[in-house]
Lab assay of single mutants.
Amino acid sequence: QTVHVKGVQYHFPNPEEAVKFALKVAKDLGGRVEFHGDEIHVE
């Protein structure tokens, strides 16, 4: 599972961890989380 944050990719073997990370980052940055297939983008 890959999380993209402002052009940087973070790889997580566990999808659940990836989602938790993405939600935390989005909250910290005041952004939103978008799901694109296997990828999660924080915009």
Rank of each mutant, 00 (worst) to 15 (best):
A22H: 00
V5H: 05
P13A: 13
H41K: 07
V8N: 08
L23E: 15
F35D: 03
Q9P: 09
G31M: 14
F21R: 02
T2L: 07
P15V: 14
Q1L: 14
E34K: 11
H41P: 00
D38A: 11
P13S: 13
E34D: 07
Y10T: 03
R32Y: 13
V8G: 04
L23A: 10
V19D: 03
V8I: 12
V3G: 00
K27C: 14
K20I: 09
E43G: 09
K20P: 01
V25P: 00
H11Y: 14
V33A: 04
I40A: 02
I40L: 07
Y10F: 10
E43K: 13
G31D: 03
N14W: 05
E39W: 07
Q9V: 15
H36E: 06
P15H: 15
N14T: 14
F21E: 04
N14A: 05
R32E: 05
E16M: 09
L29Y: 08
G37H: 09
D38E: 10
A22Y: 02
V33I: 12
Y10V: 04
K6I: 07
I40Q: 01
G30I: 04
K24A: 13
R32M: 08
E17Y: 05
V42Q: 00
V5I: 12
K27A: 12
T2E: 03
H11P: 04
Q9R: 12
N14Q: 04
H36C: 14
V3H: 01
L23R: 10
E16N: 07
G37P: 05
G7E: 05
G7K: 04
V19G: 03
G31K: 03
P13I: 12
V25H: 05
V19H: 10
H4S: 08
Y10P: 01
E16S: 09
D38V: 10
K27H: 12
A18Q: 01
A18R: 00
A18M: 01
V5L: 07
V42N: 01
K24E: 12
V25M: 14
V3M: 01
A22G: 02
V5K: 01
V19L: 15
K6D: 14
Y10I: 06
K27Q: 12
A18I: 01
Q1T: 15
H36G: 04
Q1E: 04
